[in-house]
Design a protein around this nucleic acid. Structure first.
Lengths: 354, 354
DNA sequence: GAAATATCAGACAACGTTGTCACCTAAGGC
DNA sequence: GCCTTAGGTGACAACGTTGTCTGATATTTC
């Protein structure tokens, strides 16, 4: 519905580029003041419907897109409607599901989400947080991997809202959404013990992380309660990749006194173990329980028994905690423990050889 | 190394909040002008080392974090060092890997990535693009899902760099990174034909998307070249979820004239089919080839033969194309076809029953 | 018909930063 | 000793927007 007599936008430059139009230009085209355009764009009351129409037409014609960053600058203390999510690796399905849950809540509120993976390099954590802080995200959801998050105290004092997922931070206080790593691990290992297993190996991730630590503690709890000795070569930690897990489990099973059951304490490790068991052809004689569910775990034969978290829910809860804190910075911090569920599919129900 | 005599930052308010400090405050504390602080922060030459030291100390003391959004405002025509990635669903491993690839390239350049999933709701595409455009992302990588991307023309003319992954856009021109959906599908189906299969079913995703269309065309190409009739009930399209795929494949295999081989044209569909085949106990008698690789496909028994894309590489290439366009807006657009590979694992090598 | 009130529109400063330019000082050249 | 130059430093405007306030019309009230 463009009127022919309306002035046209400035012609394109040599590269076909026309710089983005501003409120000033919309105002000029509509024949009103800059402020009136601002009012129309923000749907503020008190503009006659005639001017609203004029402005809207001009805005459409110039393909005006408000510059949120400029707006946020002026709206002091106002929000950028932007949050960040800093994870270990988005391509890990566990973290991808967290991101999805966060997005789900954020999009409802018109908030955009920065996603950042830390990769191996845990020292990047602070750098990435600072990069996002410079972009003035309103809040940040972090799966802590650095040894210490004390550096966040200043950020938080400056008004950056924080929530933590998967692991509690060290050195600062904040809202935390975790699963009961220790308890769930303990019950998984107890399940193996109840079947009669005594030679149960623990294969875990990066030992420095609280998550891995808690899962290890849960394993120990169960073993000690049952008064079962843990030979040191049944405890393997700091495993990082599927490939590494496969190699290690293969070696473990070929040792002189192989375990009769495996507790694989992280999803990549579980997958590596699944591979190892199958390539040795012992998937029906050696029991396995994994931490974290994974796709197709139920289709394998036997199905893989796992302690399943609900990462998407964790993401949603974290986002909700973050927005709650943005709404009320003074509210008390809370730790939410999302229950994990032991899903029995067969691999965890294999009894020890007589 | 804080000197005791240095003035202290303003005391915290009642909520423990101290608003973020600005260059002006750093300048006051260091006893220099605002502009000098700016120079130090941006490492511009021509500031005496004494002042550099003073400013740096003041900045640390106040925990100063430059406001990138304000800086970008002034640096007109300058970049926000921010890009967006709009996908169907980050929790799908295929898309998660693309995100990872994009991140990988972006982080090297100090660029932050907005991630957004469209979910079912393809009509959201334009809204999300506009939301990111308002945040003045320098560029956008889009996996098109809406029927038409003509709406992007204005954005691109305003200087928004675009790259497309997984599918070519409709209605605009741009850099595209795709796999050879049609050719790879054709060769997969030909592989089944060469084994002697004639009753080959096609189970595909949302038919309106070019990807699904191309894969279907590849299937038809192979079948027609081999002069094999395609009964209409062997073609099932618009399948969206694992569950749906499972139900449909189950029904198909229980029909009067079940197919002897399946070509499942998308990763979620492949997983559904894997489930269906196994729950019917026919995974060793009905052949299957899937499009897109998935975790553990090789561990299943039989392993699932797939046409594998390299989504992480697709993400990397897309990000590189995007940055190349940012560097030179006038460069010609290109379509990069990333080869897919047929990975034979067993399920695709099952011959038809005699 | 005057005064009081809505209603609407615009001028202006401000947000936190950078680009431009002008200024000051000390060093070097004659 | 004067002029030039280089090296530092700061004042000021500007980026695109919104908050505040003031002003100009209509509309109501008595």
């Amino acid at each position: 519905m463009t009127t022919l007599s309306s002035p046209q936008p400035p012609p394109d430059g040599p590269t076909g580029h026309r710089p983005r139009s501003t409120m000033r230009e919309v105002a000029a085209l509509a024949g009103v003041s800059l402020k009136t355009v601002s009012r129309v764009i923000n749907r503020e009351p008190g503009v006659s419907s005639e001017l609203v129409r004029k402005v809207e037409r001009a805005a459409t014609q110039l393909d005006f897109r408000p510059n949120l960053t400029a707006a946020n600058l002026r709206r002091a203390g106002q929000r950028t409607a932007t949050i960040g999510l800093v994870l270990e690796d988005v391509s890990n399905p566990f973290f991808a599901a967290i991101l999805r849950g966060v997005e789900e809540v954020a999009v409802q509120r018109g908030v955009a989400v920065f996603a950042a993976s830390l990769d191996e390099d845990h020292s990047q954590e602070q750098q990435i947080v600072e990069a996002l802080s410079s972009r003035r995200v309103d809040g940040l959801i972090l799966a802590p991997t650095a040894l210490e998050q004390g550096y966040l105290a200043n950020e938080m004092r400056s008004g950056l809202a924080m929530a933590f997922v998967d692991r509690a931070p060290r050195g600062v206080d904040g809202d935390v959404i975790v699963t009961d790593n220790r308890g769930a691990s303990e019950s998984a290992v107890r399940h193996l013990l109840e079947l009669g297993h005594r030679r149960i190996a623990f294969i875990g991730g990066v030992a420095a992380l609280p998550t891995a630590e808690d899962r290890y503690d849960g394993y120990l709890d169960a073993m000690m309660t049952a008064e079962v000795q843990v030979p040191s070569d049944y405890v393997i930690r700091d495993v990082r990749t599927v490939e590494q897990a496969e190699v290690i489990v293969t070696a473990l099973l070929q040792s002189a006194q192989p375990p009769t059951a495996l507790f694989t304490a992280q999803n990549l490790i579980s997958m590596g173990a699944v591979r190892a068991l199958r390539s040795l052809g012992v998937e029906r004689s050696v029991a396995q329980i994994g931490y974290d569910d994974f796709e197709l775990a139920d289709v394998l034969n036997p199905g893989v028994t796992v302690v399943a978290q609900d990462p998407r829910r964790i993401g949603r809860l974290a986002a909700e905690a973050l927005f709650a804190r943005l709404a009320d910075a003074a509210r008390a911090t809370a730790t939410t423990v999302v229950p994990s569920e032991l899903i029995k599919r067969g691999s965890g129900e294999i009894p020890p050889p007589r």
